[in-house]
Amino acid sequence: MNELFEQVTLGKLDLPNRLVMAPMTRSRAVGGLVTDLTAEYYAQRAGAGLIITEGTQPSVIGQGYIDTPGLHAREQAEAWRRVTDAVHERGGRIFVQLMHSGRVGHPCLYPDGALPVAPSAIASGGQIYTHDGMLDHPTPRPMTLDDIASTVEDFVTAATYAMEAGFDGVELHAANGYLLHQFLCGSANARSDAYGGSVENRIRFAVEVAQAVSDAIGPERVGMRISPANGNNGIDERDSADVYPALMRALAPYELAYVHVMEFGSREITKLVRAAWPGTLILNPHATGQEAKVTPEAATAVLREGLCDAVSLATLWLANPDLPERIRAGGPYNEADPSTFYGGGHRGYTDYPTVAAR
């Protein structure tokens, strides 16, 4: 039997297969609220061993893009409840990804035009798409110690709302150049206090968030996503081989449900993380080959190599709501339409056909 269809334990969940739906921003939550269309989208993909939602801001100041969902108010939790109910009715399991964007934000997203916050006053060098065109990310406001403490509490509050909303757990986004990743990386973190400088100091914030959220909802309901050496959003990470094994060792005592590695072309760092992390590991493998696409065959290969316990895929899930059935049948696979990735309605969201519908 294909290794992708073996059962695996994640926290206290017994997953029926090792196929994980990776988090993908879709920008269809106007006003920060998910909709019935969101519920349909995720329910269609309930055949995944685990669904991890799109990045969801744990606070107003944590938002990084237009029309992304939040989980810092009861109204938002109530909206998400429709999603979790729909997924569970189809027999699925779903974690919400809590994503604070840090410096990858803009005053146009926040009340009174506030600046985004970050470990240091270092701009990402990138831009944000808005309905009025592209805008530069500004230089962020460096976080005070009080800001850091309150942001930890924001993650706890969001995780508590996630439980009220019926999620099976939360994933803490410490990847892709967002806030937790910014603290990990020396090019974004020039602090001289207990949260900057040494590797031990730079991992401190991520560990404190993981500990606080685990204390609040149980470590078996908490995962963390990392992306060693990923240069997204202005990150220049040159000591990944030191940072991530240290982070894994620091997180190990909390017995999180999983660590989720978004691989960025460095298989050797993946191996270092695998060796340092004693728990369940989900791998989003990097693409290889001329087409630069992660295939089901590549997903099976990393399981056979023992690099991970489950494999997350992204675009394949986006375009193929019945992905497990298609993998079992050897395809064919729908091609994703990039023009519909962000924003819009049902087109390119809930209208991809299943094999049964052909």
Rank of each mutant, 00 (worst) to 15 (best):
E268V: 12
G32V: 11
A22K: 05
I226N: 00
P107R: 09
Y258F: 10
S266V: 06
A241Q: 15
Y129E: 15
D146G: 11
R328C: 06
P138T: 06
M143N: 13
L307T: 08
Y129M: 14
Q97H: 10
L323R: 01
A250V: 02
G62P: 00
A158F: 09
Y110P: 06
Y42Q: 08
Y195A: 03
Q76E: 15
V152T: 09
M99Q: 14
D85Y: 01
A241Y: 13
A22S: 15
I128K: 03
G92H: 02
R347I: 15
R45Y: 02
A22I: 13
L37A: 12
E291M: 10
V83Q: 01
A246R: 09
N320A: 06
H346T: 15
A86N: 03
S227D: 02
Y65I: 14
D322R: 03
G126I: 12
T300M: 07
F205L: 15
S339Q: 07
T9W: 07
D112Q: 14
A190M: 07
R326S: 10
S27M: 14
A212P: 00
G166P: 13
P23T: 04
E305P: 04
A257S: 10
H72L: 08
D136W: 00
I61T: 05
A29W: 05
T68E: 04
W80S: 05
E6S: 14
R26K: 09
P138I: 07
N189C: 02
A114M: 15
S150Y: 00
Y42I: 09
L307S: 08
T130W: 06
D351K: 10
L307N: 06
D239L: 04
T130L: 05
T340P: 03
Q76N: 08
L172F: 13
T151H: 01
R326W: 08
W80M: 07
H131N: 03
H173T: 05
R238S: 05
G113P: 05
H346L: 12
L323N: 02
A336C: 07
H137K: 09
V156Q: 10
L98P: 07
G32Q: 08
R191P: 01
N2K: 10
S240K: 09
H137R: 10
A194W: 04
L180W: 05
V30Q: 14
A276F: 08
A292V: 14
A329P: 05
A310G: 06
L251D: 01
V213W: 00
T139W: 05
R249V: 07
G197Y: 01
P69E: 08
A43W: 02
G92E: 02
Q211H: 12
G133V: 14
P324F: 01
G91K: 04
A118D: 11
R28D: 12
L323C: 09
P116A: 11
R221Q: 08
Y65K: 11
V209P: 00
T295R: 07
E255Q: 15
E220Y: 10
H181F: 04
I52E: 08
D193K: 03
L145Q: 13
E6C: 13
D136E: 12
I94C: 05
A79C: 04
A301E: 13
P285S: 06
M248F: 08
I66A: 14
Y161R: 14
L247A: 00
A292D: 15
A357P: 01
E200H: 11
D239C: 01
A310I: 10
G231D: 13
Q57F: 14
A275E: 15
F155K: 08
M248W: 02
P219Q: 10
N233K: 15
G92Y: 03
N232E: 13
A22L: 13
P111H: 11
T151L: 06
A252E: 02
